[in-house]
Amino acid sequence: MKKISVNKDSVKLVIILSCIALVSSLLLACVNLFTQVDEEAKLRETIGEVYSSPLTDTTYDMSGFENLPKAEILNMFKAEDGAVVILSKSTNCYSAGNGISLLVVIKGDDILDIVSYSHGETPGLGTNALTDDYLARYEALSVSDFTIEGGVTGASPSGKKEVANYTGATKSSNGVRDAVTNAVRAYVLIAKEVA
């Protein structure tokens, strides 16, 4: 008799717990329907504001690409005039937020434009390394100034041009460097191959 009542109790526990779990996942599914963000449409819109040439539907296969340690290529588009727009992310930053995402436009062998797409940086600290002035220092470089193969650190070898860190915002400067270097690597190793 005693054993049966124990079972009844535990069955009740399980039923209540699964009911609550079911209700909450249904609720979340509903909310998710309403709040879904179409990331790619938003991204294409922003790129439209940044770069005049319209994007093509070319997609790249990123499966064989090895990212730098703290960087990731989120998306890569080809514009109609042959430029490649890369959304490159780095998690090397000060805040607990979602890292630094940069839009890097590369055409031929030149970096045409670098724009901060989204970031969770601390105002007055990490944001110093994300100003247009600081990013413009990278726009002066060309693809040949970066190390493509070899060391995982991606640091420029001696003799090549290098951008100094923003004093006081070391981590974010490193983050910008990682994101840009990774974008250039993706451009050389993947976009150029396809072309």
Binding site: S24, L28, T35, E121
Partner: peptide, 29 residues
């Protein structure tokens, strides 16, 4: 049970923030 209830609401906040306040969402992460 408490954790389930709390997790549900915090996920809702997260989703709403991502949709309507993307800048703040990026900072909080």
């Amino acid at each position: 049970c408490y954790i389930l209830v709390i997790a549900t609401f915090s996920t809702i906040v997260e989703m709403v923030m991502r949709k309507f306040l993307p800048a703040i969402y990026d900072v909080m992460g």
